[in-house]
Design a protein around this nucleic acid. Structure first.
Length: 556
RNA sequence: GCCCUCGUAGCUCAGUGGAUAGAGCAUCCCCCUCCUAAGGGGAGGGUCACACGUUCGAUUCGUGUCGAGGGCGCCA
């Protein structure tokens, strides 16, 4: 099996300059906190492949002018096959580094040998991480907000897997409590209406059309209770039906969970009790007004929280803490919880609750990724959502109307902290305006060119790339080399949208390249080199799309 | 009132302690005898909300102000 590791030029450059710095300024070796060379990638290609700004940072400390420091570093640089000549000193004291052609091109060979693994790393070291996402209550169909959560959570999971983490995807069902009762009562009311019985619809009932459908199905499948007397049976029927619908939607969306964790099991397994007892034992609780409170203010919350109401039942916050305790106890030293931003209030509380347990859970546990609200646009107008009337855009609507690929891409393409406008017409359009088609088309276009050439792609593995000299080729090479770092950054910062940004840029480079001049030239060596380059590009596009769970079509 | 997120081109949004802040759309000009024009090239368009601070350097970090969205219950 070929190694997935890409020999990173950046770290090699850093090592080279670190050596040069110490040999030019040996005094720095004696510092308590050693100065670390940072290598960055300039945005402006005129500034070379890499840049080092250490001279500016050290000017004050050393009392020497930045350009002089830069010169001393460059002069002390050991000879290296990595570099194309002596680095330039530019501006106030930047050192701009250009790679030797051979160093620039080795990324293609890395891509060819690593294939689907290119860009992956072993940074996670096989450690366990849980990603909890969607976690919709089984009280209705999944809507756009859940869709965004599903896309972001699943992409995070894929990113972490690509970085060598052992990921478990988990869905937490709030299948206990008042809202589920409410669901049952809503269905019951519809059932009674149907047979002409007097029935008050619950005040906070669910009014969607789907409730009526569930009532009809219940009546059909359980004719013994046509008048809707058996509240328990109705409730479990409704929950099962809605869970089933949600599962189908998620499956159609390409999202699968390893574990579905039921809130009700926290009660039946006694974990809620156990958690409360433990918190009492640790001395972080008090009784007041007939209720049991947790002193969450000791752990950064802005007010204390009720755990057990005066009527003896628990608030939702207790099972939330108990649930997160199980994450820790199940061996997930790292856990990520993906939620809609409307739940951000629970963040401080759950973390405080975990701290109060005094069981060694780190303070920032779990990591939270919150996504902001979504506005759906159709025909230039906002699609209004009315929860009261039960009318909203469902995930299923989007998948059916614009397709799985576009829906997934649109949901992750903005950073999750930003509110998202989902333009249905744009997502459906097959044009350059539509970012997902633009990227997919780049992939299809390469397939088409390779097809037209008609040769054996295996031949391209060891082609000589030195004929590649124009600026499109060099920029494409540079973009390809960025991919592993991009994935690492996106995973580290839990920012899946970076993958979309990268893919759009890569696709744009490719489209420019094709249109710049005649692509399939007469010169056989140049032609093969170009084909090898786009073959590598296709691989990276494919790997990037795979992380997003979006298909990479051969033709469109 | 308190907490969270956001504020960057006319619009939708990226990005960053560094050099001239980017992309797409929209507007204007231009380009198909190689693959799919479902594409490409170019022009115009900016007080990076505002102020102060930290720094050699701030759009980026900190504090405050203003504006938008969301959240704050013995609801879940």
């Amino acid at each position: 099996m070929p190694s997935a590791a890409f020999v990173d030029n950046k770290s090699a450059i850093a090592a080279l300059f670190q050596q040069a710095l110490y040999s030019a300024f040996p005094a720095l070796l004696e510092d308590a906190s050693p100065f670390v060379i940072e290598v960055e990638k300039p945005k402006n290609p005129d500034h070379g492949h890499f840049a080092v700004n250490s001279a500016l940072q050290l000017a004050k400390k050393l009392g020497i002018k930045p350009r002089d420091i830069a010169e001393a570093i460059v002069d002390a640089l050991p000879a290296s096959a990595l570099l194309a000549g002596k680095p330039e000193i530019a501006g106030p004291g930047f050192i701009n580094i250009r790679l030797a052609r051979t160093a620039e091109m080795r990324v293609v060979a890395s891509i060819m040998s690593a294939g689907d693994q290119f860009g992956n790393s072993t940074a996670g070291g096989g450690r366990k991480v849980m990603v909890e996402f969607v976690s919709a209550n089984p009280t209705g169909p999944l809507h756009v907000g859940h869709g965004r959560g599903a896309a972001i959570g699943d992409t995070l999971a894929r990113l972490l897997e690509a970085q060598g983490w052992r990921v478990s995807r988990e869905f937490y069902y709030n299948d206990a409590g008042a809202q589920i009762n409410n669901l049952g009562l809503s269905v019951q009311a519809r059932l009674r209406e149907k047979v002409g019985l007097e029935s008050a619809f619950p005040e906070d009932g669910y009014r969607g059309q789907y409730i009526i459908e569930i009532a009809e199905r219940y009546a059909q499948e359980d004719p013994r209770d046509a008048t809707g007397n058996d509240a328990d049976a109705i409730r479990s029927f409704a929950v099962a039906a809605l869970r089933h619908e949600q599962d189908l939607d998620l499956k159609a969306f390409g999202v699968q969970f390893d574990v579905h964790y039921l809130e009700s099991s926290l009660y039946t397994d006694g974990l809620v009790e156990k958690t409360v007892d433990h918190l009492v034992k640790m001395g972080h609780t008090y009784e007041q007004d007939g209720a049991l409170w947790l002193r969450t203010t000791d752990y950064g919350d802005d007010k204390d929280r009720v755990m057990r109401k005066s009527d003896g039942t628990y608030t939702y916050f207790v099972p939330d803490v108990a649930y997160h305790v199980t994450k820790w106890e199940r061996g997930f030293a790292r856990a990520i919880t993906e939620l809609g931003a409307d739940h951000h209030g629970s963040l401080a509380r759950v973390r405080a609750g975990l701290q109060a347990m005094e069981m060694g859970v780190p303070q920032g546990y779990p990591d939270y990724v919150l996504h902001q609200m979504i506005t759906v646009m159709r025909a230039g107008e906002e699609v209004k959502i009315s929860k009261r009337a039960g009318s909203y855009v469902t995930l299923r609507d989007l998948i059916d109307e614009v397709g799985r690929d576009a829906t997934r891409y649109f949901f992750v393409m903005r950073k999750s902290d930003s509110q998202l406008t989902f333009d249905i017409d744009l997502a459906k359009s097959r044009s350059e305006d539509n970012p997902v088609y633009y990227v997919q088309y780049a992939h299809a276009r390469i397939c088409s060119v390779l097809n037209q050439w008609g040769g054996d792609c295996g031949r391209l593995d060891s082609v000589d790339l030195l004929p590649l000299t124009n600026k499109y080729e060099s920029e494409l090479l540079r973009a390809l080399a960025d991919f592993p770092e991009l994935l690492a950054t996106a995973a580290r910062e839990l920012s899946p949208h970076l993958v979309c940004v990268y893919l759009s840029e890569l696709a744009a480079r490719l489209h420019s390249y094709y249109n710049a001049e005649k692509f399939l030239v007469e010169d056989e060596k140049l032609k093969l080199a170009r084909l090898a380059l786009i073959l590598a590009t296709r691989q990276v596009l494919k790997n990037g799309l795979a992380v997003l769970g979006v298909s990479a079509p051969d033709k469109m």
